[in-house]
Design a protein around this nucleic acid. Structure first.
Length: 524
RNA sequence: GAGCCGUUAGCUCAACUGGCAGAGCACCUGACUCUUAAUCAGGGGGUUGCAGGUUCGACUCCUGCACGGCUCACCA
């Protein structure tokens, strides 16, 4: 019996228990101000891995996701209509959905994200910030903030190198008239009544009651505030917050000295880059949304994609060429876990990452053992028809995987989306409905070969290997170079020079069709 | 300017608290009468970015430098 090599989440969990004890709250937070992408997913997946690792070590642990639905809209993002300039500065929970399908702007981006993480087996308790403010959860924190106004200003000036005026008040009242958080200036406040008097740039002067969600703390206070409110002990966050003078630096001082709460165990992760394009960013249009990724990869593969790397490594995700590599890595991982391949040492090394990649319970059996590479071929010749697909699987030697046909179909769908959106041209082909014109240019001897091949294929039921050999041998006997022979076949069926391994390819196609096409090519 | 993270084989990454530098892919050779994006067997590959230091021992710790990424705004 070999010991599993611990995953980084296991090592961190142990350290967390040493520092924080057995009772923990893991928190993550993402602002749903645009489509939530794969980069953002790293945060919540990191949290999920820590949550699971802690739980397995016997810790009592909660996992929460705080949606920053009360944040103001910062600017008119490229994906928004120009008319949204009037909403800049308003909380995203109070702006209309740009596509009109949800209750509000925040919901529009939050809902698909939550759907996506559920598919990935991530089930945090969801907390919407605007509701927390409305329900008065922040009231006490805001009281303390106002009481310690000057001290906080000092901390921000010192740690973050700010140049804030003495009368700076770290609270953003929402203008009753124009609805913006970013255009108000506080004139006075009354902590007993939880009220602040403000002047807004829109010309309105009013009073906001922060116990009713009529004001918001700026990020630098909001973050440490929520640590105390929700009892947060562990929080993964992006490297942007980890910098000296950044919000974790000020947050940990503020929470200790002002709120009387210990900062959570920080867990810093790197960005995910899109190969060749830079850091993922919805607002720059270089992002793959979570739902796009779930269209091309099974959920456990997505988990693996992120969890396999240590959080301090940046990930270069290459949906074009990296796709097949990822598939092959995962397939190998799976074979090792179920001991279809590799040594006990291999098993020990990979077992934990396999477990953490699973969406729910660890399956008793591996998934269908049909390589994605082969599915890429099948998807393109079966043209989405399930009966065709079934026959092709049998013909290409995967009959015993038919018991997992549903999962194979799902993989075909993933691959179809990938072919449509990302696949490099080398792997793409299209079975030609009619015989390509180029076949007319074949030499007589080449046509003879194709005709002879048709005759041979008719003789019996071949398997992929046999047919592969047949093609080669037949070509040799007719004095045609192997390479040329395969090219002739690809041109006849696909109208291109190369293609999937010919024997397996032809054997996957309906026999009648193959014979007819070869004969036709031979006589054209 | 200040600081954070990274730098290990051609590529992507491992190496738990210092203890023999490893995988996958790619590449090369061979095999399967056999071409591909297939299978099997074998192989080459490293001054761990550079320069010092601590140590019996450094990829690991310390100092400096270089390169890449990021951040220092009421911004996630």
């Amino acid at each position: 019996m070999v010991e599993k090599v611990p995953h980084w989440a296991d090592i961190a969990a142990e350290e967390i228990i040493n520092i924080k004890g057995k009772k923990n709250v893991v928190a993550t937070g993402i602002t749903p101000s645009g489509p939530i992408h794969l980069g953002n997913l790293r945060e919540i997946l990191t949290g999920d891995a820590l949550y699971r690792a802690l739980k397995e070590k016997g810790a009592e642990v909660d996992f929460i996701y705080i949606a920053d639905t009360f944040d103001p809209l910062r600017k008119v993002y490229p994906f928004l209509p120009e008319s949204y300039s009037e909403h800049v500065g308003k909380p995203i929970s109070e702006i209309p959905d740009p596509e009109g399908c949800h209750e509000n702007y925040a919901e529009h981006f939050l809902e698909p994200f939550l759907g996506g993480i559920r598919v990935l087996g991530i089930n945090p308790k969801v907390i919407k910030a605007h509701e927390s403010y409305k329900n008065g959860l922040y009231t006490e924190i805001i009281d303390i903030t106002l009481e310690n106004n000057e001290k906080i200003t000092e901390i921000l000036n010192e740690i973050a190198g700010r140049n804030l005026e003495k009368d700076f008040v770290p609270l953003l009242p929402k203008c009753e008239k124009c609805g913006r958080l970013t255009t108000t200036k506080i004139v006075s406040y009354n902590i007993q009544k939880h009220q602040v008097e403000y002047q807004c740039k829109c010309g309105y002067n009013g009073v906001a009651d922060y116990s009713k969600g009529e004001a918001k703390l700026p990020w630098r206070l909001d973050w440490p505030g929520r640590w105390k409110i929700f009892g947060i002990t562990v929080e993964p966050f992006g490297k942007d917050h980890a910098t000296a003078g950044g919000s974790y630096d000020t947050g940990k001082i503020i929470t200790k000295e002002i709120f009387g709460y210990e900062p959570p165990y920080p867990f810093i992760y790197e960005w995910i880059y899109l190969k060749g394009k830079g850091a993922m960013s919805s607002s720059k249009g270089i992002a793959i949304s979570i739902n796009e990724i779930l269209e091309i990869l099974p959920p456990s593969w997505v988990r693996y994609l992120i969890l396999r790397y240590k959080p301090d490594k940046h990930i270069d995700f290459d949906p074009v060429n990296g796709y097949i590599l990822l598939a092959e890595d995962y397939e190998r991982l799976e074979r090792i876990y179920y001991r279809l391949e590799g040594t006990e040492e291999d098993w020990a090394e990979f077992a934990r990452i396999y477990e953490l990649s699973q969406v729910g319970e660890i399956p008793k059996e591996p998934g269908p053992q049909v390589p994605l590479r082969h599915i890429i071929t099948l998807a393109q010749i079966s043209l989405g028809n399930e009966e065709n697909l079934k026959e092709m699987l049998i013909r290409s030697g995967y009959e015993k995987e038919l018991k997992r046909f549903d999962e194979i179909i799902r993989r075909v769908r993933y691959v179809e989306r990938w072919l449509e959106k990302f696949a490099p041209s080398q792997v793409k082909f299209k079975l030609q409905d009619t015989i390509p014109e180029i076949v007319r240019t074949f030499a007589p001897r080449e046509k003879e070969f194709l005709k002879a091949l048709a005759g041979k294929i008719e003789e019996k039921d071949w398997n992929g290997d046999e047919l592969q050999n047949l093609i080669y041998n037949l070509a040799q006997s007719l004095g045609i170079e192997g390479k040329k022979a395969f090219k002739l076949i690809y041109l006849s069926f696909l109208n291109q020079d190369s293609g999937p391994r010919a024997g397996y390819f032809l054997v996957s196609l309906p026999k009648d069709f193959v014979i007819k096409r070869l004969e036709e090519a031979g006589t054209l």
